[in-house]
């Protein structure tokens, strides 16, 4: 017990544990982002997280809760608006993503008494991980992973062929909604690690790296988790030895792994 306690007293270990926790959920969800082409959607939710932060100060809600609620609302709004089909989905996402970010920034500027580390929010503040943050991360991770395991077949089937899944009785719409809530949860906790602007990278890059090597969907998910953890560890090491910003270092490591894997598999198949 004292070993764990002393580990948790060390900011470096807290950062590593928190990063690994997020990477473990970002792996499977990142795979869904890649499979369902939701990259821009993830970006939009991440950007709206800033609006959530502004709201949390405005109505004094806990930060994480406010971010989750805002992300869920934006996700629902997106689903509703995309049904009307008057605008292309990417246009709609572009409008919402940047408007949410801008409204968040403008709202924060009205609250001069709130001293906020904007850089930390935008690019992550991994080294400032608190014990409370860890609790949020691991609570969220357990919840999301349990849901994923339980709903796996339906989620996979509706990703492969939505109409076929619907004919076979899979509750496609409900699963889509649950997936969105899970994204919102992960974004709320991942914000701490890599920041609003880099969250999508943490979702997509490990999953895309895994795709080069995977033969089954589950294989891809497992590899994405491993690559995510490697990116967190590598980024922290980079930050430790070269004094680089931790969040961007994680993304840089993930990208380097992606390039290396790509080069290796191209060579192997050539």
């Amino acid at each position: 017990m004292s070993l764990i306690d002393s580990l948790l007293n060390d900011f470096f270990w807290r950062a590593l544990l928190g990063g690994v926790g997020v990477a473990l959920v970002a792996g499977p969800l990142g795979c869904f982002v890649v499979w369902r082409r939701l990259a821009y959607f993830g970006d939009t939710l991440a950007h709206s997280a800033l609006l959530g932060i502004a709201l949390s100060f405005l109505i004094s809600l806990p930060l994480n809760l406010a971010v989750i609620l805002t992300c869920v609302c934006i996700a629902l709004l997106l689903v509703l608006l995309s049904r009307t089909r008057t605008l292309a989905t990417d246009t709609l996402l572009g409008i919402l993503a940047h408007s949410a970010l801008a409204i968040g920034l403008v709202t924060l500027s009205f609250m001069p008494e709130v001293r906020l580390d904007l850089t930390g929010l935008l690019f992550g503040d991994l080294l400032a991980m608190s014990r409370d943050d860890l609790l949020w991360i691991y609570g969220g991770a357990v919840l999301v992973l349990a849901l994923l395991v339980r709903l796996w077949r339906g989620l996979l089937m509706s990703t492969i062929h939505e109409e076929l899944a619907r004919v076979e009785g899979v509750p496609v719409e409900r699963l889509r909604l649950i997936l969105m809530v899970m994204f919102s949860l992960v974004i709320a906790v991942a914000m701490k690690i890599v920041g609003v602007l880099l969250i999508t990278a943490l979702l997509i890059i490990p999953a895309a790296t895994a795709r080069r090597l995977a033969r089954t969907p589950e294989h891809m998910v497992g590899l994405a988790m491993i690559f995510g953890c490697l990116a967190v560890a590598g980024g922290l090491a980079l930050s430790w030895y070269l004094d680089t910003p931790a969040g961007p270092s994680v993304v840089v490591t993930a990208f380097a792994t992606f390039l290396l894997t790509y080069a290796a598999t191209v060579k192997a198949t050539a």
């Binding site: 890649v34 499979w35 369902r36 082409r37 990703t159 492969i160 062929h161 109409e163 076929l164 895309a208 795709r211 995977a214 033969r215 089954t216 969907p217 294989h219 891809m220």
Partner: peptide, 12 residues
């Protein structure tokens, strides 16, 4: 269905 459009990113 008329066609099975498969997302190439999903290994199956």
């Amino acid at each position: 269905p008329q066609n099975l459009h498969m997302e190439a990113t999903l290994p199956l």
